[in-house]
């Protein structure tokens, strides 16, 4: 599960930070910011989305000031979730904001991050290893990065038609491989 990998990574960073490792601490805070921002934004109505950044900062400050209350034998993500949830409830009450989700709704923080779907990108990279390298490059450039077929073909020193055929064959073989027999 991805959540367990996240827990493991975050917990290692937190334990290193508690022992005084500033580099690990910086990475932890930076990474948490990416998870917390969308988590807060999703629970605020459109008119209050601007509060998400404040909440991220309040949560980081609380993590810093209250880090001695983290029990090293317990999951870090659960502790952080409790801190973030507490800060959210506190903020909402103080500003008399009507949240978009019920206060008791405990959606996990670590289900999404906002770094342009890093996990999806990893999946795409894994899938593209199944076709020849040049074909994979062409597919990535035209279908993901938004280059035109002419540009991509020029980059690889091939004709536009050959590039088209290569992309088409590559996608077809990927579909055959991953779409399964159900279609």
């Amino acid at each position: 599960m991805q959540a367990d990998a996240t827990e493991k990574r975050m917990r290692e960073l937190m334990l290193a930070a508690l022992d005084g490792d500033a580099a690990a601490y910086r990475r932890l805070l930076a990474e948490l910011t990416r998870y917390l921002r969308p988590w807060f934004a999703r629970r605020l109505s459109a008119s209050h989305v601007s509060h998400a950044e404040d909440l991220v900062q309040e949560t980081l400050l609380a993590l810093h000031a209250k880090r001695s209350t983290y029990d090293r034998s317990r999951p870090f993500t659960a502790w952080l979730h409790a801190v973030a949830h507490h800060k959210f409830v506190d903020h909402v009450r103080r500003h008399a904001i009507r949240p978009t989700v019920h206060l008791d709704d405990d959606a996990p923080i670590f289900a999404f991050d906002d770094s342009a779907h890093a996990a999806d990108r990893r999946d795409v990279d894994a899938v593209l290893t199944q076709v020849p390298e040049r074909t994979a490059d062409l597919i990535r450039q035209t279908r993901i990065e938004g280059a035109s077929i002419a540009e991509a073909a020029a980059r690889h020193g091939m004709s536009e038609t050959a590039a088209k055929v290569s992309i088409h064959r590559g996608l077809k073989s990927l579909v055959r491989r991953f779409a399964g027999g159900s279609k």
Partner: peptide
């Protein structure tokens, strides 16, 4: 803003 905060918190880190 948040990056500045992270800088400040990181430089304030003491072992726990």
């Amino acid at each position: 803003m948040t990056d500045e905060l992270i800088d400040r918190l990181t430089s304030d880190l003491k072992p726990t």
